[in-house]
Simulated scan of single mutants.
Amino acid sequence: MRFGILVFPGTWSDTDCYYQVKDILGQDADYVWHDETSLDAFDSVILPGGFSYGDYLRPGAMARFSPVMDALNKFVASGRTAIGICNGFQILCESGLLPGALLPNQHLEYRCQPTNLRTERTDTPFSRSCKPGQLLDVPVSHGEGNYFADAETLIQLEEDGRVLFRYCDSSGQVTEDSNPNGSANNIAGIINEAGNVLGMMP
């Protein structure tokens, strides 16, 4: 597979994504600057974390207007996969590719810590290597990772099985204490209706 790693002004975990794809997974990867207008050369796209455009207005609010986002809309409409991590998740929500929004952490503190995620589904391109209920030890580093959606949207996400990862404790129990940012329903990651776009905060 060939991965495109989107880079906006202020993106900072693009090199981490490149290393994981290229050196750990052994797949092809290229950086894609935000003013590109085509993603046709790629099989999958990653929107890394960071502070795109300095998080002015809201995290991801300005990045959604970058030329590459039109290309991303066409890309995912074709059925190819995209994953947004941290700021990438915020950009996906701001652009309407995923529902909801990421608000300031409930306790209004920046959190950089390990978290446990429970895998809720294993029949997606993003989780097929996981076992049902598998716990993942994943660090978080964010100040605005509090996933919010209105009640109707949350019900729909749950009924459709679109919550892919959920914050939990070390035994897999979903608790208030295991939620690092106040996200609704302990949501850590969701997918779109088609199942080919994933946004996750950790």
Rank of each mutant, 00 (worst) to 15 (best):
Q27I: 15
G96T: 10
C93R: 03
F65M: 03
G79I: 01
P59V: 11
Y18H: 08
K74L: 07
A29F: 03
E94Y: 07
G96M: 00
R80P: 05
K74Y: 12
A101F: 11
I91T: 05
P104I: 14
E94G: 12
N87T: 12
K74N: 09
L92N: 02
I85K: 00
C86S: 07
G50T: 01
P114I: 00
G79E: 02
T115F: 05
R111I: 14
A82F: 06
C86L: 01
D35I: 05
L47K: 06
S38M: 13
A61M: 02
C112N: 15
A29K: 00
P114T: 10
T81W: 13
V45C: 00
C112F: 15
R111N: 11
N73L: 14
E94D: 12
L98W: 02
D23E: 15
D70V: 01
V32H: 00
G84N: 13
A82M: 10
G26S: 05
P67Q: 07
V68T: 10
W33D: 11
I46L: 07
C93Y: 04
Y18F: 07
I83H: 09
D55C: 06
L102R: 03
G60D: 03
F75S: 00
I83E: 04
S44T: 09
L103R: 13
L103H: 14
V21F: 12
K22W: 15
D28G: 12
P114W: 13
C93I: 08
S95E: 12
L57Q: 15
I46Q: 08
E36I: 04
V45I: 10
Y18G: 06
Y18S: 03
F42M: 03
K22Q: 03
H107K: 12
Q27M: 14
K22G: 00
K22M: 05
N87E: 10
G79H: 05
I91Q: 03
N105F: 05
Q20R: 14
F75N: 01
P48T: 08
M62T: 06
S95W: 11
Y31F: 13
I83G: 06
R111H: 06
L103G: 08
E94W: 09
S66K: 01
D43N: 05
I24V: 13
N105G: 01
A41D: 09
I85S: 07
V45Q: 02
S95C: 14
L102G: 04
Q27T: 15
H34I: 11
N87V: 06
R58M: 07
Y56W: 14
F42I: 09
Y56I: 10
L103K: 14
M69Q: 10
A101P: 09
C93T: 08
D28N: 13
S66W: 04
L57E: 15
L57W: 09
G84P: 06
Y110E: 11
G84L: 10
S38R: 04
A82L: 01
S95N: 12
P99G: 05
F42Y: 11
G26N: 11
Y53G: 01
Y18L: 13
D70C: 03
D35Y: 11
V32G: 04
G100Q: 06
F51G: 02
L57A: 08
N105H: 09
V68Q: 02
F65G: 07
N105S: 02
G84V: 09
V21N: 01
S38N: 10
G79R: 02
